[in-house]
Design a protein around this nucleic acid. Sequence first.
DNA 1: GCTCGGATGGTCT
DNA 2: GACCATCCGAGCG
Length: 157
Amino acid sequence: MSGVGGIIVETEAYLPDDAASHSYGGMTERNRAMFGPSAQAYVYLSYGLHWCLNFVCLPASAVLIRAIEPKWGLETMRERRGVSRDRLLCSGPGRIGQALAINMEQNGLPLWREPFCLRLPEARPEISAGARIGISKAVEQPWRFGLANSNFLSRKF
DNA sequence: GCTCGGATGGTCT
DNA sequence: GACCATCCGAGCG
């Protein structure tokens, strides 16, 4: 996203047949991107004011990007966020949306080229799992994943 | 450190 | 008209 970003440290999975997933109940105008090809972005507006970024995986499945350890373009992200503490730059899906200037223009864009730039980690990281955050259905599913020892989580595992 | 509640608007029933 | 995959600031300890 024009030179801003970092290391993804927290995600949540949303599957087909998952009552907490936007894809649950079939395709609508809003969630159309979720039913499209894999490896594209799915963007939606949360609570009327937060843009949230997902990666579409299998059909009707997506991974919500919940937290990033800021690495690149810190000044730009600080300006967009209006915060001084780097801890709060990208620690939460809505904060990521603001820091990366996410909006509907990215909805449905492929992830393998500009404005995205995805890389695998050099070493396989230790991934922790836990219950998802901020949902009211399928609460018990442990489909929140991330780096438990990161300082940039939206919440501890 | 914590909890609580308001802001805010698209989507779906 | 209710429901949200949220954030932030105020108030309190």
